[in-house]
């Protein structure tokens, strides 16, 4: 009889269950990340899991990695320092839609521009969960939030397009419903040399679901199951068939030297001079 394979990657002396609400998708993303790390056979001592602030960012403490829980929006800046100082470390940034794209937006686009080698797992629940349900840069226009009682008046970002435009070498989106695909995308991202984004659409039943009357965890996951289109299929569909749906899969996959690799050339030049 076999015990859950992910247990060996959990922090041995940390109390469980995790802090997330019942049915929150974040725990599913954690499972996918752990399985991706195991599939690639990465050494826990070389894993650096860096997070910002928010529901997403409570993940690192539960993982038996080098974990660094930083300040709101600043995970990617800290991660840049970790990676640059010790390029041997596999850096995974755990962030949320508010953490990465609102307060952290400047660091997000610049780390992508520099192509600093890190995998950014952006858990998108389209709301600020930790602070009680305010709208975020990915809350769809017209949706309700504690700070948008009449529906938001703002259009939302597409994090994958943003990352690609800024220079990331990899940008993909998965849902927690299709956890197997999400794991595959994270595995691909971890194997990339450069800034690799995986956006994981992760429902928030407690706040987003309740404020927008989209039901509980099961209903929100059911909605994901019925409203997801793979990017390849979406290309063949007329726009109105794709509008309002979650498009998943790999949007961008390129090869560009990573920042630390290029900086090693700077060092070589400086030493040669």
């Amino acid at each position: 009889m076999k015990i859950h394979p992910a247990y060996e990657m959990l922090r041995p002396d940390k109390n469980f269950p995790n802090v997330w609400c019942p049915g929150c998708g974040h725990g599913i993303v954690q499972g996918a990340i752990i399985r991706a790390v195991q599939k690639l056979g990465l050494d826990r001592d070389e894993m650096a899991m860096v997070s910002g602030i928010g529901c997403s960012s409570r993940m690192p403490v539960y993982c038996d990695f080098n974990s660094l829980h930083t300040a709101h929006g600043r995970a990617i800046a800290f991660a840049t320092g970790v990676k640059l100082h010790n390029p041997k470390l596999h850096v995974i940034v755990i962030t949320g839609d508010g953490d990465a794209l609102a307060i952290g937006g400047n660091h997000f686009i610049h780390a992508a521009r520099r192509n600093v080698e890190m995998t950014v797992v952006l858990m998108n629940n389209m709301i600020y969960g930790m602070t009680g349900g305010q709208y975020s840069p990915t809350t769809p226009i017209g949706k309700r939030a504690s700070t948008a009682p009449y529906g938001t008046a703002e259009r939302d970002f597409d994090p994958c397009s943003l990352a690609k435009a800024a220079g990331a070498v990899f940008a993909a989106r998965g849902t927690v419903y299709n956890a197997a695909e999400l794991e595959k995308l994270i595995t691909q991202a971890l194997a990339k040399k450069g800034f690799a984004l995986v956006e994981a659409v992760s429902p928030c039943p407690t706040l987003y679901g309740r404020l927008n009357r989209e039901g509980n965890a099961v209903k929100m996951m059911q909605w994901q199951k019925e409203n997801t289109v793979n990017v390849k299929a979406a290309e063949k569909l007329p726009p109105e068939k794709v509008r309002g749906k979650i498009v998943t899969g790999v949007f961008h996959d390129a090869e560009t030297p990573g920042y630390t690799e290029i900086y090693d050339r700077v060092i070589a030049k400086a030493r040669g001079a």
Binding site: A77, V82, H85, N106
Partner: peptide, 15 residues
């Protein structure tokens, strides 16, 4: 903010 952020990240990694 990013400047001190990288410094603290590097320090956490032993710099």
């Amino acid at each position: 903010i990013a400047g001190i952020g990288t410094v603290l990240g590097a320090a956490a990694a032993g710099a």
